[in-house]
């Protein structure tokens, strides 16, 4: 059953391949606590002064782990998208071959 057209399913394919690769890599980088990604952590409010280093580290660790999981979740969602658009692409190419 074809829901998407030929072009949309191709777009979905490319986007999901890209998403899987980049998001799973970003997940790994968050997991190993990459400093470059520090600016994009959730739950860290900008404060004028630091009050407790321990709390800061705990927050950061939590954020890193959370983001690592989130990235992998998004990557998994892209795997589903990949499967779906791959199927659509296959359906489309088969129907176009028949004609």
């Amino acid at each position: 059953m074809a829901i998407c057209g030929h072009k949309l399913s191709l777009c979905g394919l490319i986007l999901s391949v890209w998403g899987i690769i980049q998001l799973s890599l970003m997940g790994i980088f968050y997991y190993i606590r990459s400093v470059a990604l520090f600016e994009d952590l959730p739950g860290l409010e900008e404060e004028d002064k630091l009050h407790s280093i321990e709390k800061f580290y705990a927050d950061a660790d939590k954020g890193y782990l959370q983001n690592a999981y989130n990235c992998w979740i998004a990557a998994c969602l892209y795997i589903i998208t990949l499967a779906f658009s791959g199927h659509q692409f296959w359906v489309n190419s088969r129907s176009s071959l028949r004609v």
């Binding site: 986007l15 952590l41 959730p42 983001n67 999981y69 989130n70 979740i73 998004a74």
Partner: peptide
């Protein structure tokens, strides 16, 4: 998308990543 707290962040990231990629 990365700053959303909790596991909803995964779904937000899924949508926002596609916008960013486009």
């Amino acid at each position: 998308g990365l700053k959303v707290e909790g596991f909803e962040g995964g779904i937000a990231l899924y949508i926002i990543f596609s916008i960013w990629a486009t």
